[in-house]
């Protein structure tokens, strides 16, 4: 006779994610990344000591969703704000959450200098190759040939230059310690994303330097696709220009990971 086993919940909303409806479009991976961040915060038990910095972009309301302290930065200035906060309160875990328009256009300067100074902060960078919030204009990360509302015939690299690869760029800076690119288009990639965000927070908590996790993401609405089509497009187009992988893992970080 089999023993009667009590039913257990094996997947539910993490504690650090507010029980509210988000404003995100159906199928937008911002929601998945929020949840994964909240799961890591729960796992590390750092909800009370974590501060997020929200960007300008679709995720401007992240402070309504992730249940930690939060501040809202001026467009692109999240790394500067995080720097101040972390320096005054080194006991906190401080992370910025930024889109590609926020981080790689108007905020490039703040990003690069925070990274090269080796600030002990973490950036979660959502690269969806477009300005989502403002109606789908070209971003620095828009792919060559990609149609956006400001490149209706496709991004012409003669006119608009080439897309910026943020991980490759930031990994050349001495102050950066852990720079990786992940995605969230299937459960296995989401598991790897979670592991990377956890490592990034642990790198910060160990004081090893600047950490950044890029997420190759989607924008079904402004890409003009269904959510499922957008995941296919992401895999077929984005990953070739933005290969997933570890761009920089300092020796000190490798030692830390070996201990965990």
């Amino acid at each position: 006779m089999s023993e009667a086993k009590e039913e257990k919940i094996v997947f539910q909303r993490p504690k650090a994610l507010c029980d509210v409806v988000t404003h995100y479009c159906p199928g937008c991976l911002h929601g998945v990344v929020h949840r994964v961040i909240a799961e890591v915060i729960d796992d590390l038990g750092i909800q009370e000591i974590t501060v997020g910095i929200a960007p300008v972009g679709c995720s401007v309301l992240a402070y309504n969703y992730i249940a930690t302290d939060f501040a809202e930065a001026a467009h692109g200035r999240a790394p500067a704000m995080a720097t101040g906060m972390k320096r005054v309160h080194p006991e906190l875990v401080v992370f910025t959450y930024q889109g590609d328009g926020d981080l790689a256009a108007i905020g490039t300067n703040e990003l690069i200098h925070a990274a090269t100074r080796g600030e002990n902060i973490t950036t979660i960078f959502i690269n969806n190759a477009i300005y989502g919030m403002t109606g789908g204009q070209m971003a620095p990360t828009t792919l060559p040939g990609q149609v956006t509302t400001s490149t209706p015939r496709g991004r012409d690299t003669k006119l608009a230059g080439f897309p910026v690869r943020v991980c490759e760029l930031v990994s050349t800076l001495e102050g950066s310690a852990y720079i990786v690119r992940r995605s969230a288009y299937n459960p296995s990639e989401i598991r790897k994303l979670k592991a990377a965000i956890k490592t990034a927070f642990q790198v910060q908590m160990a004081g090893l330097g600047y950490s950044l996790v890029e997420v190759v993401s989607n924008c079904p609405t402004n890409w003009g696709m269904t959510p499922l089509e957008s995941l296919k497009w992401l895999q077929e187009n984005m990953l070739a220009y933005y290969p997933l992988g570890d761009y920089k893992v300092k020796d000190s970080v490798k030692e830390l990971m070996a201990k965990k």
Binding site: E7, K8, I9, F11, Q12, R13, L17, P26, V32
Partner: peptide, 19 residues
């Protein structure tokens, strides 16, 4: 099998998994 793959994909955390 309660693997939670479906729940992991959900951007709106609308799925709870029991096992």
């Amino acid at each position: 099998i309660g693997c939670a793959f479906c729940a992991n994909m959900c951007p709106d955390v609308a799925i709870t998994v029991y096992r």
